[in-house]
Amino acid sequence: MTQSQTKKILLAHGGGGRLTAALIENSILPKFGNETLNQLTDSAHLELGSGSICFTTDSFVVKPLFFSGGDIGKLAICGTVNDLAVAGAKPAALSLSLIIEEGMDFEIFEQILQSAAVTAKAAGVPIVTGDTKVVETGAADGIFINTAGIGTKIDNIDLSMNRIVPGDKILINGNIGDHGMTIMSQREGMKFESPLKSDCACLNDIISKVLETGADVKFMRDPTRGGVAATTNELAASSLHSIELIETALPTDLTVRAAADMLGFDLLNIANEGKFIMVTSADTADKALNAMRAHPLGTKAAIIGEVTQKEEMPIVELITTIGGRRIVQMPYGRELPRIC
């Protein structure tokens, strides 16, 4: 039986036999093929130069698989590329491992792969190795994807918590909460139509443009799960410095804000997939901000707060719209919509 005769993923597609070979030949290589991957060796052989190497991995289990602004394929590439980029690395190569539920439509599978391929190509990062497994119906939810990435450390940047001092500025490259609210609005059971769109994007280009300005960048992280609240709390706890965020400076989309208000969510806790938080020295913050704003992924970039003081039990505080203050907590981990 050849692939053209079946429209569904079968257990045999992951069995290592003829169907697996056909899947690699017909679905994987045409989309991702490159000199390294085409050799189909057990390990990819890479020439990375003599510098320092960054290595990361991430797994993707999003539901729904397709959402406004992206899909699990795009997300799987962006997530790992971004983890390398915020570590100050230039992404060099990715792996792509697929765990597919038996019975998945081939057409959907192909769409996801195509989206991953387009995203990786646009980010300029080749996929050099991978794996495919098929599990019985019910053992996975459509498809799970793992990507790992390797990159070379960019020269002349020194990301270190030890260098953070009071007065340093905190920047973000645009609106917060778009991805999380989009997923929630499209998830099964939440029936409201909305023009929300995920911000899912690869950040390696915008980050390299900011770094080229010579701004004194001390910290970068992508505020994915747990949102800006989690990232700033991690920053405070690791650097032992308290942080003040300015509510009026936080870039937000009005529709996203309304959706969050309606469900009782705090946008600071909501996931992003195309954003990075950056800490720079006070005197080079504008340089970094201008570089962000000049990039399509940073037109709404803003300085959203600053590092205030060194202390043993640092906190993150928000200066509210009316000039009040409140604490910004590390989120619990699962947001529950309220009753009324």
């Binding site: 009782g264 705090d266 928000l318 200066i319 509210t320 719209t321 009316i322 000039g323 009040g324 203050r325 409140r326 309220r338 009324c340």
Partner: peptide, 16 residues
């Protein structure tokens, strides 16, 4: 109202 409670805290109204 619970929504008032949350808004009061989230907007930092008490200290003002």
């Amino acid at each position: 109202c619970g929504t008032h409670t949350v808004s009061i805290f989230r907007n930092g109204i008490r200290p003002t």
